[in-house]
Write a protein that binds this DNA or RNA. Sequence first.
DNA 1: ACATTTTGTCAAGTATATTTTACAATTTGT
DNA 2: ACAAATTGTAAAATATACTTGACAAAATGT
Lengths: 64, 64
Amino acid sequence: MKNLKLKAARAAMDLSQQELADAVHVSRQTVNAMEKGDYNPSIRLCLSICKVLGKTLDELFWEE
Amino acid sequence: MKNLKLKAARAAMDLSQQELADAVHVSRQTVNAMEKGDYNPSIRLCLSICKVLGKTLDELFWEE
DNA sequence: ACATTTTGTCAAGTATATTTTACAATTTGT
DNA sequence: ACAAATTGTAAAATATACTTGACAAAATGT
């Protein structure tokens, strides 16, 4: 259930979990949990992350 | 801050708030709050609604 | 006009996302 | 090999999503 698309998008921007967390004003553990999966973040947090990483909701959070 | 895209997509499927709520296993008040706006639902709930309404996350929840 | 369905809204309770602190495991750079 | 940064993880506290029950306003059908 890991979110590898998120992890990859963060890596592509050369950001640590801490840096991404700071950019969207959440804790590092929250970003870690999102990448780890089995987690259910809010849509606003997802939108914030999308904007920082230059991706859309579908690109980072859609699942078949 | 109303989510009119959600409201319109639900109307297009001819579903009441109650029927959509039942389909995604939340209360009618939760669906109402999402359409009303000033609300921050979970990504999983958004995904469930997308699948019922035949739309993507970007179509219903993206905002510039 | 009337009955029925749908919607808007509120207040109190429950479930869970998110924070904070802390520490071990892993990776990266020199 | 060593130091520093990054990541994985856990437990307790706090913030907030979501529920339940209830009632009025508005819309829809006959």
